[in-house]
């Protein structure tokens, strides 16, 4: 574990160093250039692009989490029970839509820029969170929910004190899937002029500069893996803290 932690910290440190001062790493990417192409993308600062990329992902994910968990709570209460079968199949069907298609279809409605990317990330991010929240809220051990009613908790107390805390690790797994998809889709968002790290890759592809492609790809890839890894660790901690040994897929 400690070796793993050291590797993660080193990778994170390298990533941050590269984002802040990309020029100091020019020698790494020099060999990939041809005919005196620049080794480092400078049209836009890498730091700004990264921050903007992460902000878009964060906003979309937070919004998606609020809405998805809210909806999942609604359809698992007696009032919304009629919507449960439908919402399950929507979550299932919806995930067969490629994120790129969602992104491309948002453009005509919202124009170019950050807005369509945000909306696409939000819409697509809803599904895994919603699906996991449903799973989390509907697969609680029956003896536990039974006991919660038996000791005299009100519906609201049951939801807040028992059901949601126990479902949190599973919901978090949904958020993790959603974030990973969002980091990827935000990259493609630069084809519709959102300001994200995809810009570096696209610039490389357009100007046939492998150095750009590689640095954009590396930053996005390493960032995605680190975020995924951190969220998985958080899930394991929460799982242990809530005394559960459920397998997360």
């Amino acid at each position: 574990m400690s070796i793993g932690l050291i590797i993660r910290l080193v990778v994170l440190a390298l990533l941050v160093a590269f984002i802040v001062t990309p020029e100091s790493f020019a020698f790494v990417f020099q060999p990939l250039t041809r005919n005196g192409q620049p080794a480092i993308y400078t049209q836009n600062s890498l730091l700004n692009l990264t921050l903007s990329h992460l902000t878009i992902v964060a906003i979309a994910t937070i919004a998606a989490t609020l809405v998805a968990v809210g909806l999942a709570i609604l359809v698992t209460r007696p009032f919304g029970a009629e919507f449960l079968p439908l919402s399950r199949s929507i979550a299932n069907i919806g995930q067969t839509f490629p994120p790129v298609a969602v992104l491309a279809l948002a453009v005509p409605v919202l124009g170019f820029g950050t807005a369509p990317t945000l909306v696409a990330l939000f819409l697509y991010g809803l599904l895994p969170i919603f699906e996991n929240a449903l799973t989390g809220l509907t697969t609680l051990p029956p003896t536990v929910t039974e006991a919660a009613r038996g000791v005299g908790m009100t519906d609201r107390q049951r939801l807040l004190d028992v059901e949601l805390p126990l479902a949190t690790p599973v919901i978090l797994a949904g958020i993790r899937l959603s974030v990973v998809i969002s980091v990827a889709t935000a990259t493609i968002g630069s084809t519709v002029a959102a300001s994200t790290l995809g810009e570096v890759i696209i610039a490389g592809l357009l100007s046939n500069n492998l150095a750009f492609v590689a640095q954009g790809g590396l930053v996005v890839g390493v960032m995605a893996v680190l975020i995924y890894d951190a969220l998985s660790a958080l899930e394991r901690i929460l799982m242990a803290r809530t005394g559960q040994r459920r397998e997360i897929s």
Partner: peptide, 21 residues
């Protein structure tokens, strides 16, 4: 394999250009 899945597609596509070239 998990880490590979996590890498955004366009980044992976891009990263593969160099070795395949």
């Amino acid at each position: 394999l998990n880490a590979i899945q996590t890498v955004p597609s366009i980044a992976l596509f891009g990263l593969l250009i160099a070795p395949l070239a």
